[in-house]
Amino acid sequence: MTEKTVLIEISRLTKVYGTGQAAMEALKGIDLRIDEREFVAVMGPSGSGKSTFMNILGGLDTETSGAYRFRGVVVGQLTRNQRARLRRYYLGFVFQGFNLLNRTSALENVELPLIYRGLPTRVRREKAMRALETVGLAQWKSHTPGELSGGQQQRVAIARAIVTEPAVLFADEPTGNLDRSRSREIMDLLVELNGRRGLTVVMVTHDPDTAGYAGRVVRFVDGLIESDEPNGRVS
């Protein structure tokens, strides 16, 4: 076991939507630390604040109070563009609804984040091809999302997330739209990426089976962490 390095550190994080009477407290004070190479599942019923929490972790939203440090950087103090750069260079996203560009081939979808890194076309193609090979879709590179199954689409999305070699992969209900066997394929892929490549994975799910693949399970209830325990599986 290598030495543990802190990747994400969260203290007394709150998020309030609206103001005054209509104010809604989505997060009521979260403390959490995630190390590099961890595979964390965030569980909880809808409305427990886990999506809000993921949006803040992903730099898509900002907290009301408290602090979120990513590799020591206080993300809440970054400007909108600085947070965009954080996402571009360090974060990968996988969504429940895949969120691929329709009418655009699998390869081009995977290439997309590299365009924003300003890489030349040839390098982009190579890297995107390698990512597609990693998820086992090399022969599907010219297909558009509409021509792929749900599981294949999610694998393209994963390829797009890992093509930039991010520090962490945020997966929001990655198997929410998939049947059992497709779910297993996706989870096996995530476990492999976590295990073999040492990619940190933070995954939101409400499905206990899916959460079972993670090394650590954090349960949210009503804007607070109810429990935080290892899952038995060594990561």
């Binding site: 750069r85 571009r88 260079y89 969120n99 691929l100 560009l101």
Partner: peptide, 9 residues
């Protein structure tokens, strides 16, 4: 999608 994967404004 573009904004999420790191496109600047």
């Amino acid at each position: 999608i573009r904004l999420a994967i790191g496109a600047l404004e």
